[in-house]
């Protein structure tokens, strides 16, 4: 079966985020960018499904500026077979990303679509569920285990109370949580090979999707800084402070 994986180019998770002085957003100039960590887990899961003989082809799609092709190449180096780049320099919000992915799904007709549960920039946690709703697919969100059995997929989900397993009809959407797998690193030979794998470019206009944002960002501010407090000498002093100064016990 064909598996479609969506990946997003975001600020590297190790980078300290700085808000622009004019409060228009976060400073992304000369900042290291990388594949969203949850998307890496999505690629890894697809590659494992292929290694098990469950997936026959892995198509990776990314929406974003020209530079997002770096993240597609990374996914190709990790084992995806071909890439689709939906190129735009405009901001793409979750609903519009889901509409673009829907257009790709209608062309590619994958049995399974795997996405990260959220991106670490906008922290929205929306696109996979929106894609599922728009395409009439079921969804297994926050997945920690994915087992394909015939025309169904069983997804174990990380929920507030523990774990919950659902059975979904295929085709389905899965969004990854942290413990689904540990992504591998791309080997140098595979990075070289990835350069020769096919990568098709398209655009929101080609796909017939209006990506005008529905949410306007009024301002972006740094959070209120929390002051470091004091160091206590020992446990007895700590308990005394908590009881008599902070009055929280």
């Amino acid at each position: 079966m064909k598996v479609l994986v969506a990946v997003k180019r975001v600020i590297d998770y190790n980078v300290k985020v700085r808000v622009k002085p004019d409060n228009s957003g976060v400073d992304l100039a000369n900042v290291k960018m990388a594949m969203n960590p949850f998307c890496e887990i999505a690629v890894e899961e697809a590659v494992r499904l292929k290694e098990k003989g469950v997936a026959s082809e892995i198509v990776v799609v990314s929406i974003g500026p020209k530079a997002a092709q770096e993240q597609i190449r990374t996914a190709l180096a990790l084992g995806a077979d071909r890439g689709i780049h939906v190129e735009t320099d405009q901001e793409v919000q979750s609903l519009e990303a889901a509409k673009l992915l829907k257009a790709v799904v209608e062309k590619e007709e994958p049995k399974l679509v795997i996405l990260g549960k959220q991106s670490i920039d906008s922290d929205n946690n929306q696109t996979g569920q929106m894609l599922a709703a728009l395409t009439g697919m079921p969804q297994g969100t926050f997945a920690s285990e994915v087992v394909v059995e015939g025309e169904k997929v069983n997804v174990t989900r990380e929920v507030d109370g523990g774990l919950m397993t659902v059975s979904l009809n295929l085709p389905a959407v899965v969004t990854t949580d942290l413990r689904l797998n540990e992504p591998r690193y791309a080997s140098l030979p595979n990075i070289m090979k990835a350069k020769k794998k096919p990568l098709d470019a398209t655009s929101p206009a080609d796909l017939g999707v209006d990506i005008s944002p529905r949410l306007e960002t009024v301002k972006v501010e740094a959070p209120a800084a929390r002051k470091a407090g004091i160091k206590v000498e020992d446990v007895a002093q700590l308990v005394d402070k908590l009881k008599n100064e902070a009055k929280v016990i």
Partner: peptide, 10 residues
């Protein structure tokens, strides 16, 4: 947004 390292008004 950004793990609470920025606060957006939308």
């Amino acid at each position: 947004i950004y793990a609470g390292n920025a606060i957006a008004t939308v």
